[in-house]
């Protein structure tokens, strides 16, 4: 079996199904509320997707290998804190803070990868441990106080500014959304066009067969986790920029939203199958649902119930498709 042939197996229908659900949700909410179908609300939905979307891209990479990363939420916070320490405490220029946060993200991913491959700790446990370690470190480094970016004017522009709005004033799409799309495109390219991507799918499909064909699984896997960590670092920059602060207590719980977006988008938790486009659609479905239910003034308790059923329904639809 040639590894080059191991491409994401026929997920076109799943994508079409997920995309169809997204369109259907948008149409239903648009029909029910005139306040939903405004341009500014559509932009709100996209912006609300940016942080969770980037996190979901990170989670997708790991889930395709058949692993799971429970640390994405607190790792995001940790990279935001890193940016805060570099920019506000050390007074470094913004690009260095951004690069530092992304590198720190890659480092946390590498650490998870090390625990999983060299110490043979199952991904669920290794990343659960990392989730707590990083949460604790964020609180320790900051002394539980948020770090503000007031001394780095321009930092908030990364997520909240709008390059598109400068060109087309009527369409002030926040930069955070562009960054989400850029990250999705880059990771999509890596997964489909590079050796790292091919091994990501190969490990997820059949790790033992890949190992027996002479691939240094441990090295590639650590690379995969490092890539996912770097993407988490981008999410850290986005949330820090959006809030003009690194909030050390935030982040736990975001991993579950990210994983939900990934599975709604048709990525299999057993590994070997999934796409970034599917994940982006999954994240958008979650945002549209949250936004739409709020606009319709559905009670918050019922919003949670509805989101739960959507996750179950989406995965069930995916299983039906696999049977046929």
């Amino acid at each position: 079996m040639s590894l080059t042939k191991l491409k994401p197996s026929g997920s076109t229908l799943q994508k079409a199904l997920a995309f169809g659900s997204l369109i259907a949700l948008v149409l239903i909410f648009s029909f029910l509320s005139e306040n939903f179908r405004t341009l500014s609300n559509m932009i709100n939905i996209l912006q609300a997707t940016s942080v969770i979307g980037v996190l979901a891209v990170s989670a997708t990479i790991v889930i395709i290998t058949g692993g799971i990363d429970l640390s994405v939420g607190t790792a995001m916070t940790f990279t935001a804190v890193t940016a805060g320490m570099l920019l506000t405490w050390l007074g470094l220029p913004i690009p260095l803070g951004v690069i530092g946060a992304i590198l720190m993200g890659a480092l946390t991913g590498l650490a998870s990868g090390f625990f999983i491959t060299k110490m043979r700790i199952p991904p669920f446990i290794a990343t659960l441990g990392m989730m707590l370690v990083l949460k604790g470190l964020s609180l320790i480094f900051t002394g539980t106080k948020p770090i503000y970016f007031n001394d780095s004017p321009g930092f908030t522009e990364i997520a909240s500014g709008s390059l598109v709005g400068l060109l087309v004033p009527a369409f002030p799409l926040p930069n955070g959304v562009l960054i989400l799309f850029a990250v999705a495109a880059i990771v999509g390219w890596i997964l489909n066009r590079t050796a790292l991507g091919r091994y990501t799918y190969a490990v997820g499909s059949n790790e033992e067969a890949t190992r027996l064909s002479g691939v240094n699984i441990d090295a590639w896997k650590m690379g995969i986790y490092a890539l996912a960590g770097a993407v988490t670092g981008v999410a850290g920059i986005l949330i820090a920029s959006r809030l003009n602060s690194a909030q050390p207590a935030l982040g736990q719980g975001y991993e579950l939203e990210a994983i939900a977006a990934v599975v709604i988008g048709g990525t299999s938790l057993t590994g070997g199958r999934g796409t970034i486009l599917g994940t982006i659609i999954g994240a958008l479905i979650m945002s549209v649902l949250t936004n739409g239910l709020r606009i319709l003034s559905v009670a918050p308790e019922w919003q949670i119930v509805a989101t739960g059923f959507i996750i179950i329904g989406a995965v069930y639809a995916d299983m039906l498709r696999k049977k046929t």
Binding site: T38, L243, Q247, L250, T290, R294, P300
Partner: peptide
Amino acid sequence: VEVGGGDHLKSAEITKTLLAA
């Protein structure tokens, strides 16, 4: 009466939705 859980980002999104609605 929405519930933001004290989460800054969630509360920001809720606010924008309330303003849209």
